[in-house]
Write a protein that binds this DNA or RNA. Structure first.
Length: 483
RNA sequence: GGCGCUAUCGUCUAGGGGACUAGGACGGGGCCCUCUCAAGGCCCAAACACGGGUUCGAAUCCCGUUAGCGCUACCA
């Protein structure tokens, strides 16, 4: 297979904030396309807006992509480093007559725009500088008068076959002669993008819907620059639950936020993949490898999708249960250590026990934080009793204490600390006392965990071990006698 | 305002002229399981924006309306 048949794509975020979930999804689709068709995915940081770009944002983009596990080919391209080529391309446009110098100032333009608005008319640059004589242009440039370079939009219409929307067309009369080079000789977005995409030999440009109206301008630039057109694919936007463009007021929009909320990157990717793409049929929960396998442009959606955090959580729960314990462990351990439950070394020395614990807790967790929250009772010497658990299951302290004393005796007297004999013994105790087993289980659960919610009582007794279990009951008894 | 894009349950979607009394998933409700909570299983409510065509036949094709969104900078 020749390289010509291998697509070259790029993800081109501007480093003006953090890695937005919409950006992450764009990156994912580009990545999927590149991997699916054995192409290349390049990363370009669009840092030409010096006022808004920061190194910190650039780092956030790297970190986000790294966490998600989306890699790229070759070195990172910094758009700002290509300034000379952008300027050269602008000059070429001027020389070939595709563009012209414009001396209108921003202030003048603003004034005319406002006037047009007052008259309820659409403003479009009137090309007055295109009518300037060659001599006058030369004279004013020589005199040091600032000017921009404007692209002269030709007659006709500009259209393309979009990978997701099929045919899209714009009458050129609706496109104004746009600026390509500012008066300070820095390029405008559309020029920089086209210049770089040509230089990087990009063949598939996949980006957000919000760039649709830039596309005719860019196509015109490609033609004027004598370059071959890439294939365009415009992805639908992501909105918040209110149908408006997703933003901070909708809650977490940075992928870093989700990382810190205890989400799994695989779940995030899976959720994002489904927001604007479907493999067809009923397929939902997928690994990255499966997504590559199933990916196709036919499944790309045209409609904007609404970001539903509930489904993301559910998806995370699915992935939590789906991945291997070996994959799960390194994601949880740092959080357990950070929560002060124990040391990484301790967990390492009783790895089998630790894995069993994770397996016990992950089924009833939706995030990594849920797991950590539930893990406390298995590590700490002291225990916190949830007031509502106490109120509900130790309603009568004297009665609860009596029950717990009996249970303690029964457990302590059971020769083998294993689920079956333990359960048989406790159930027998319940029968002797003429109560249902549940009446015994709930107070015991509170004694062991301080909570109303936990894994099964006997799974828990085994996991905690004889010593800690009995110690917990003693502590509960002490607390109850003080009540 | 102009231009563009979009339109199936509350949400993500399947559907690409007859298989549709429109399927799945999240969320909601109910039941089962059960020592709690989850998980799991079963069931219920819930949608083709509207109006015209085309066609024997339209969720599917065309046109219009409406609505939503995007763009409309010497931002990206």
């Amino acid at each position: 297979m020749s390289d010509l048949t291998k697509p070259r794509l790029r993800f081109a975020p501007s480093p003006t904030g953090y890695l937005h979930v919409g950006g992450a999804r764009t990156a994912l689709y580009n990545w999927l396309y590149a991997r699916k068709f054995s192409g290349a995915l390049l990363l370009r940081i669009e840092d030409t807006d010096k006022a808004r770009s920061t190194d910190e944002s650039t780092r956030a983009i790297f970190e986000g992509l790294e966490w998600l596990g989306l890699d790229w080919d070759g070195d990172v391209v910094y758009q700002g480093a290509n300034l000379p080529r952008h300027q050269a391309d602008a000059r070429r446009l001027l020389e070939t007559g595709a563009a012209y110098r414009c001396f209108c100032t921003s202030a003048e333009l603003d004034a005319r725009r406002r006037e047009a608005e007052a008259r309820k008319e659409a403003f479009k640059y009137d090309r007055r500088c295109d009518r300037l004589s060659r001599d006058e242009v030369d004279r004013r440039v020589a005199a040091g008068e600032p000017s921009v370079i404007r692209f002269r939009v030709p007659e006709g219409a500009t259209e393309w076959i979009d990978l997701v929307h099929d045919r899209i067309a714009f009458p050129n009369k609706d496109i104004e002669d746009f600026v390509v080079l500012r008066s300070d000789a820095t390029p405008i977005y559309n020029l920089a993008v086209v210049s770089d995409d040509i230089a990087m030999a990009i063949t598939v440009v996949m980006r957000g819907d919000d760039h649709i109206s830039n596309t005719p301008k860019q196509i015109l630039l490609y033609r004027a620059l004598g370059a071959k057109l890439p294939t365009f694919a415009h992805l639908p936007m992501i909105h918040g639950m209110d149908g408006k463009k997703l933003s901070k007021r909708h809650g977490a929009t940075a992928v870093g936020d989700y990382q810190h909320q205890g989400l799994l990157p695989g779940a995030m990717l899976n959720f994002l993949a489904l927001l604007g793409w479907s493999p067809g049929g009923d397929r939902e929960v997928m690994t990255l490898a499966e997504m590559i396998d199933l990916f196709s442009v036919e499944g790309l959606q045209k409609k904007a999708a609404i970001f539903d955090p509930k489904k993301l959580e559910w998806m995370n729960g699915q992935h939590l249960s789906m991945i291997t314990l070996a994959e799960l462990e390194p994601r949880v351990t740092p959080l357990i250590v950070a929560a002060g439950l124990t040391t990484a070394h301790d967990l390492q020395t009783r790895r089998d026990w630790y894995f069993r614990l994770l397996d016990l807790l992950r089924i009833r967790s939706r995030t990594l934080d849920d797991i950590v929250r539930q893990a406390g009772p298995y590590f700490l010497d002291t225990i916190e009793y949830d007031p509502t658990a106490v109120a509900k299951n130790w309603k009568d302290p004297a009665e609860a204490a009596a029950l717990l004393r009996a249970v303690r005796e029964t457990l302590a007297a059971t020769p083998k600390w294993e689920a079956e004999p333990l359960e048989a013994a406790v159930r027998a105790l319940a029968e002797i006392r003429g109560i249902t087993a549940g009446k015994l289980f709930q107070p015991l659960r509170v004694a062991l965990t301080g909570l109303t919610v936990s894994p099964g009582i006997f799974e828990m007794l085994i996991q905690m071990g004889r010593e800690l279990s009995l110690q917990r009951i003693d502590a509960a008894l002490a607390t109850l006698s003080n009540a």
